[in-house]
Design a protein around this nucleic acid. Structure first.
Lengths: 341, 341
DNA sequence: TTGTAAGCGTTATCAA
DNA sequence: TTGATAACGCTTACAA
C-alpha cells in the first residue's frame, strides 16, 4: 500500500506528473476527458495532496492557527465553534493550541507557528505583555488577529466586547432593583478587568453612589483551588464589614460561577442576602444554585468576526495600508433568580 | 526582512548549506567551532527550520492530531490538558480538531490528517460506525489510539473507563441510601451507553430489584435545546407513573448537569423527591443546585495514557506485532447533596 | 492539449 | 571536517 502521489498516479495512468497535477486542479489547459479520467482515478485511489510539498511551492497551508490560554468552559467552546464555522466557509482548516495560561507554552505555540505552518493566527494572549516581542516579530510575516483579551499592544485587528458597558449594565440592573451596595470580584488579565472595573465605577458615578474601596476585591485565579479559597475568604470578610454589600458582580465566567458554590457552601442566601450577576457564558445557568443572571458575550460572533478579519488581511496584497480596527461587540444581559429572587 | 533559511544562513556565513544543516543538527561530522558559529548566528537571525521541507525529507511532523466530537465542558478540557502535558513531555506538539458531532466534519478532519500532516492520531469517534472505512484506511499508514468512546471496531490501542462498573457503583450507592426506584437517562453513543446501562441492570440483578422498562429513557442530545425539552418531557412522564422513581442516574455529563436545571425549573426537590447522580466531570459541582454527586472519570489520565500508547506505536518498528490493549480505567464516585440530602 | 524541467527548504549520501 | 548533489511531492513557466 504505497502512498498515492502525483507521481504514482501519473505512472499508473501513463501520463506526466504535470498533466495529472493540472487535471486535478481543474486547469483550463486540460481536456475534459483527461480531467475526468484523472479525477476519478485519483478519487478511487484516495489521493490526498501532500500539504507540505504544496506549501513549499505555494507558501500557503490553508490553515488558521488558534492560540488561546484555556479551554475550560462554554465561553471558549463557543468562540471556537464560531471560528471553525467561519473558517470552514472560507476553506480554511483550524488548528487549536492551548497555552494553559502559561507563558512558556504560549511561546512554544507561537514559535511553532512562526515556521509558517499556518497562514494566519487568531491569538488570545495570556496578558498584556506576554510574548509581546515574539508576537511583534510574527506580525511582520504572518497576519494576526487578537480576540477577547484585546488589550495587547500590537497593531492589528482586534475583536472583543464592550467590557465597560457590560459591567455598567449589570450594575445598573442591581441599582434598579435597589441593590446599591455592590461588591465587584475581579481576576487577572488586567486589560479586561480594568475596563470592566471602569464600567462599575462609571455606574456608581452616574447614580451618585460612592465607591467603597473595600468592595473591590481581587481574586487569585491561578488555579481552581486557589480561586475557591480566595472567594471564600473575600466573601467572609465582606460580610463582616460594618456595611456589608448586598450584591456581587463577577468579572469573569469562572469567578461568577464558582462564587455560587462558595455562597452555597457558606449557606448564604442568593439573592436574599447577596444578589449575584456577572460575566458568564456557561451553558449551565439554569442548573446553578440559584439560576444565574449573566452578562453574555456574543461568543460565536467573536469567533466568526475574528476569522473574517483574519481572512481579510490574508487576502490583502498591500498589508501596510490596512487601517486596523478595534472591534467591540455589545454584550447582553439576562436576568434570572440570582438577582430577581 | 527575507525569511531565514539554511541557504540564507549559508550565504551569510560563507559556508555550504549542508554544513549549516549539520551544524544545526549537532552532527558529529562538524567541528565545535563551526557549530558554535553557526548556531549563534542562526539564533541571532531567529532561524526556524521549515517543518514542511523537513517533513518532505523525514516523513515526520512531530505532531499529534487530536480528533474529538466536542469541546463543551470540563471533561474534554481535562482530557486535552492531559494529552498536551504528555505530548510535550515526548516532544510532540498537538493540534486539535473538533468534529462537532458531525460526520462530515469528522471526515474532513480525518482526511486532512491522512495527508500525513500528523505522525499519529488520538481519535474519539462520533459513534461506532462513523467514518469507519476511512479510519481503517488511515490505520494502515498512521498510528491511531481511540479514547473515550472505545467501542469502535478497529484494531488498535484503546483508552477508556470501566463504564459498567461506574454505573454499577452509582446504583449501589442509591440502593444503599434506600433509593431503589432508579430511572436512568441515556444519550446517544451507543457503545458507552450500552455499557453503562448494563452496569445499571447488573446492579438491579445483584440487589434483586426488578428492572422497570419505563425507567429507562433515552434523550435527544442533538442540541442543547432538544436535550432540555426532552429532559423535561421525560421527567414529567416519569413522575406521573403509578410508581414514580425516587432517583435518577445520568449517563453523561450534559444529561446529568442539565437535568438539574430542569428539575429546578419544575420545582422538584432534589434529593427529597428525586436523588440525582451521574457521570460528570464538570468543575462546577459545588455551584449546582444542589451540589451534585458524581461518577468521575480520570480524565487527565485518559489523556496522558492515550499519548503514551500512541507514542509507543509510533516508536515501534514492527507495528504488525503489537498486541492491542483495551485499557479500562476505574472511575471514582463522589457524594454530595444531590444524593445525600 | 500534454510534457519537461526547475525549484520550494530540508536531509542524506557520497566525494573532496 | 566540509561541500556538492539528489531527492522528498508539488506547482508552474515554458516547450513540444
Amino acid at each position: 500500500m504505497a502512498k498515492t502521489t502525483l507521481k504514482s498516479l501519473a505512472q499508473a495512468l501513463n501520463m506526466s506528473v504535470s498533466t495529472v497535477s493540472k487535471a486535478l486542479n481543474d486547469s483550463y489547459e486540460i481536456s475534459e476527458v483527461t480531467k475526468r479520467t484523472v479525477q476519478e482515478f485519483a478519487k478511487k485511489h484516495n489521493y490526498q495532496p501532500n500539504v507540505h510539498a504544496k506549501f513549499l511551492k505555494t507558501g500557503k497551508t490553508n490553515t488558521i492557527g488558534v492560540v488561546l490560554p484555556k479551554m475550560t468552559g462554554s465561553f471558549e467552546a463557543q468562540i471556537i465553534a464560531g471560528m471553525q464555522k467561519a473558517a470552514t466557509a472560507h476553506h480554511y482548516r483550524t488548528i487549536i493550541m492551548n497555552t494553559m495560561e502559561n507563558e512558556e507554552l504560549e511561546k512554544l505555540a507561537l514559535q511553532s507557528m512562526l515556521d509558517k505552518s499556518v497562514d494566519g493566527i487568531l491569538f488570545c494572549p495570556i496578558h498584556e505583555e506576554s510574548n509581546i516581542d515574539l508576537a511583534k516579530q510574527i506580525l511582520k510575516t504572518t497576519p494576526v488577529v487578537i480576540f477577547d483579551r484585546t488589550h495587547y499592544p500590537i497593531e492589528t485587528h482586534k475583536v472583543g466586547v464592550l467590557n465597560a458597558e457590560g459591567m455598567y449594565n449589570a450594575c445598573k440592573h442591581l441599582i434598579d432593583i435597589d441593590r446599591r451596595k455592590i461588591a465587584i470580584f475581579c481576576g487577572a488579565h488586567q486589560g479586561i478587568t480594568t475596563k470592566r472595573l471602569s464600567g462599575y465605577i462609571e455606574a456608581h458615578h452616574d447614580f451618585q453612589i460612592p465607591v467603597t474601596p473595600e468592595y473591590i476585591v481581587h481574586c487569585n485565579v491561578k488555579s481552581l483551588v486557589d480561586l475557591q479559597d480566595d472567594l471564600e475568604k473575600h466573601v467572609k470578610s465582606l460580610l463582616q464589614l460594618p456595611e456589608p454589600p448586598n450584591a456581587i458582580v463577577g468579572v469573569a465566567d469562572t469567578i461568577t460561577t464558582h462564587l455560587l458554590g462558595i455562597l452555597a457552601k457558606l449557606d448564604i442566601k442568593v439573592p436574599e442576602t447577596l444578589a449575584v450577576i456577572g460575566f458568564a457564558n456557561t451553558d449551565l445557568v439554569l442548573s446553578l444554585n440559584p439560576s444565574l443572571s449573566t452578562i453574555r458575550q456574543p461568543t460565536t460572533e467573536i469567533g466568526e468576526i475574528s476569522v473574517h478579519k483574519l481572512v481579510e488581511i490574508m487576502q490583502k496584497k498591500n498589508r501596510s495600508q490596512i487601517e486596523w480596527e478595534d472591534i467591540k461587540l455589545p454584550t447582553s444581559i439576562q436576568l434570572r433568580r440570582s438577582t430577581i429572587g
